[in-house]
């Protein structure tokens, strides 16, 4: 049953002279719920963009469902950071969701089909954004906009969902709402979340990888304090950021994770 859907081998990425990702190896199984955490500038977004084919790696190999990135790309639903794009763009919620149905080779004078619209409406109802379907996206709250972006990614009926900081700048309630949605679709879809938000780890993810140029993979949510210290390099800072201790293993006197 352990069915690998994303396979990364010896991946290296440099920006000019600086190495951003060093010798990354990772297997993601089907229906895994993986968190990739790490400090800002640790290469989290870069890793996501390499998987999406947006950044070309300098060396290494990535397979998505046994295919190369270009062919495997279609299986991935991408949820970018909400801070990344133009919220003033004249587009409403429904049209954003429908965009998930578009693909290359749609041809001239393309119109979304009845199925497309039906699928989009289903998704909007599931995500509780149907009532705001005609609203321009600049007039949504952060949590609503995040759900719209998840909806757009789901509209393409992906096998893998990649999310970049889905809960950054959201309040606790919106945050748990987002993770509940993700948990709900996890029985169908492999989910990878890139985040520096440690609060959610213990309750939602089934595995955690720590990324700070190098990747440290943990098969389950047993992230030891040593791991986090090593990754972040500054445990005091961690606590100061309001990260609850319950996230971490009972580290004192306990052998760290196997």
């Amino acid at each position: 049953m352990e069915d690998v859907i994303i396979k990364i081998r010896n991946l290296n990425v440099y920006f000019d002279e600086m190495q951003v990702l060093k010798d990354i190896n990772l297997d993601v199984n089907r229906k895994q719920f993986l968190a990739i955490m790490g400090p800002n500038g640790g290469g989290k977004t870069t890793l996501l963009k390499v998987i999406l084919g947006l950044i070309e790696p300098d060396s290494g190999k990535i397979e998505i469902a046994g295919r190369g990135i270009q062919e495997g790309r279609g299986l991935i639903g991408y949820v970018p950071q909400i801070s990344d794009f133009n919220k003033q763009f004249p587009i409403n919620v429904k049209d954003v969701i429908l965009m998930g149905r578009i693909s290359d080779g749609e041809g001239l004078y393309h119109n979304y089909s009845k199925e497309d619209v039906k699928k989009a409406e289903e998704i909007m109802k599931d995500l509780n954004i149907y009532e705001i379907k005609d609203r321009q996206i600049g007039r949504l709250s952060g949590g609503q906009l995040q759900r719209v972006l998840i909806g757009r990614a789901l509209a393409s009926e992906p096998e893998i969902l990649l999310l970049d900081e889905p809960t950054a700048s959201l309040d606790a309630e919106s945050r748990s709402r987002i993770y509940n949605i993700l948990k709900g679709i996890n029985d169908q879809i492999t989910i990878i979340v890139v985040t520096h938000d440690l609060t959610a780890i213990s309750s939602y993810f089934d595995s955690v990888a720590c990324l700070n140029r190098e990747l440290h993979y943990h098969g389950n949510d047993n992230v030891s304090k040593e791991d986090v210290d090593q990754i972040y390099g500054c445990p005091v800072d961690l606590v100061a950021h309001g990260v609850p201790h319950r996230v971490l293993n009972e580290h004192e006197g306990v052998d760290s994770n196997a």
């Binding site: 970018p80 965009m99 693909s103 393309h110 757009r152």
Partner: peptide
């Protein structure tokens, strides 16, 4: 007009459009 939906997707979010397979 002939590529309106594609233009809209491209203008709104280039990266997402690329991931969806748009050139």
């Amino acid at each position: 007009t002939a590529l309106f939906n594609q233009w809209k997707a491209y203008l709104f979010d280039e990266e997402f459009s690329y991931v969806r397979g748009l050139n």
